[in-house]
Design a protein around this nucleic acid. Sequence first.
DNA 1: CTGAATAGGACCGGTTGGGTCCGCTTTTCT
DNA 2: AGAAAAGCGGACCCAACCGGTCCTATTCAG
Lengths: 144, 144
Amino acid sequence: MIFSRKTDYGLRALMYLAERRARGPVTLSEIAEKLMIPKAFLSKILQQLAKKGVVRSLKGPSGGFVLAVEPAEVTLQEILTEIDGPTRVFECFATEADCTFYSDCMMREVFGEVEDQIGAVLARYTLADFRYTDKPADSTAGKA
Amino acid sequence: MIFSRKTDYGLRALMYLAERRARGPVTLSEIAEKLMIPKAFLSKILQQLAKKGVVRSLKGPSGGFVLAVEPAEVTLQEILTEIDGPTRVFECFATEADCTFYSDCMMREVFGEVEDQIGAVLARYTLADFRYTDKPADSTAGKA
DNA sequence: CTGAATAGGACCGGTTGGGTCCGCTTTTCT
DNA sequence: AGAAAAGCGGACCCAACCGGTCCTATTCAG
Ligand code: SF4
Ligand code: SF4
């Protein structure tokens, strides 16, 4: 599986942050709770994203995370790369010496093509396409 | 990584078998040796392929493996599916209850699209496109 | 100064990928 | 019939990785 839970968590968190952008930093706890993501784990993901510059993190009280990019400006491909590293479909593990096919390998070619196609799809979407809409007050909680 | 060593080994073995098709069964040992694949491991892969009907296996002396399909008739997609199972790019692990996005999830959509694209590429090739050509007598062995 | 917040390192249990071993069965050859 | 040459298949093994936890250090608002 190319895209893991981490991918999912990270992307969802970014969607959430995109929505709250205007309203200042959002705490880890809030995101984790609303999105039902294990807090400690999400923390790691967000830290990573912070280092890559996708989000900004503010310490101290009234701190939290803020999206640092324009949602429509960052492609899904970029995001996934920052979370999971470049999308690798296959990696040739041999060298010229231990693979008969090395010098003219069809597989490397085809798998390269596959990777390109994936990239192409992923590049067509931006974070702005992934909208978070707040739940309309949980139905089990009596409202009316 | 979607495509593993197993994929690589299996596909290479099939390429080899495609070339030797006319000349009767090829033994596991021969394939393993020529292709530099761990014998016991390759055995497993070929067994699997035999059960799926891609190759036929003959026991006893003068036995071995024979390709059971027409190289040009079987797509890369089919082959890889038999070796590795269906090409899964992402699997949603949540249910309606634990993911806020469930009912209208963009990710599932996009990842589905990605899978389709991969399938499309893979379906464009057949085993016949993956040719094995015997090495022209190893260059280190003095020939001239 | 204190408390609320992130940063980050250590650690951990389960799964899986890659691979081995060995005894069993089938088939052919003499 | 028996020996030898194949494949069959189950048990096992190891290392890496994934998902996740925990604990301490740091930073900053009030
Ligand atoms: S076949 Fe191609 S990809 Fe596979 S090992 Fe040989 S060179 Fe690498
Ligand atoms: S976001 Fe979509 S894919 Fe991810 S868990 Fe929720 S429903 Fe499944």
